[in-house]
Amino acid sequence: MIVKRNKNELTLIKRCLNNERLAQMHLFNKYKDAMYTLIYRITANPNDAEDALQEAFVNVFMKLDTFKGDSTLGAWIKTICVRTALRKNKTNFKYEDITDFDNESEQLIDENMTGEAIEKAILNLDDGYRTVFLLIEVEGYKHKEVAEMLSISEGTSKSQLFHAKKHLQKQLKHIYF
């Protein structure tokens, strides 16, 4: 896959590879809030999120020479952040059979719900449910990618998502209805 990259990003990568602190700081500033938000949602703990963000960006700068450019730089950094956050969680996944897929198409949220309430409900989910839900529904990863990232089967990923949605719906109904 060829990813179009703008000149500024290429220059920034080159400067970071030359160990220029200022360029590294710019790169960090560009992605820090988005990555912190993502990591915080996965870990559901601000202290763990801070530690994971630090660890992830140190890894980004130490491994930047391995970035081959077959994805966007943002996507590459995001993968490192997700993997680092997952290591903090040490989630154990339990496979549960899915018997009912009807809920898949059901609308989870509506316009009246606030973002804070939805996030609170997501953070209340069990680690396994929350991680799969966030990666698929919020971050847009595919089941195959999530299965590979979490070292689980696609079936487990699907079942986790199914149960995550059920629990989320229950919580949101409790708040709003």
Partner: peptide, 30 residues
């Protein structure tokens, strides 16, 4: 029903201001 993007609804969080200092210190040490 109108499809709502959950990511757009969720709030974003700010990384702590002192984070760069911590990263820079670790990079220097490494």
């Amino acid at each position: 029903q109108k499809q709502i993007n959950i990511k757009d609804k969720l709030p974003t969080h700010k990384a702590p201001a002192s984070m760069w200092d911590r990263i820079e210190q670790q990079l220097d040490a490494l």
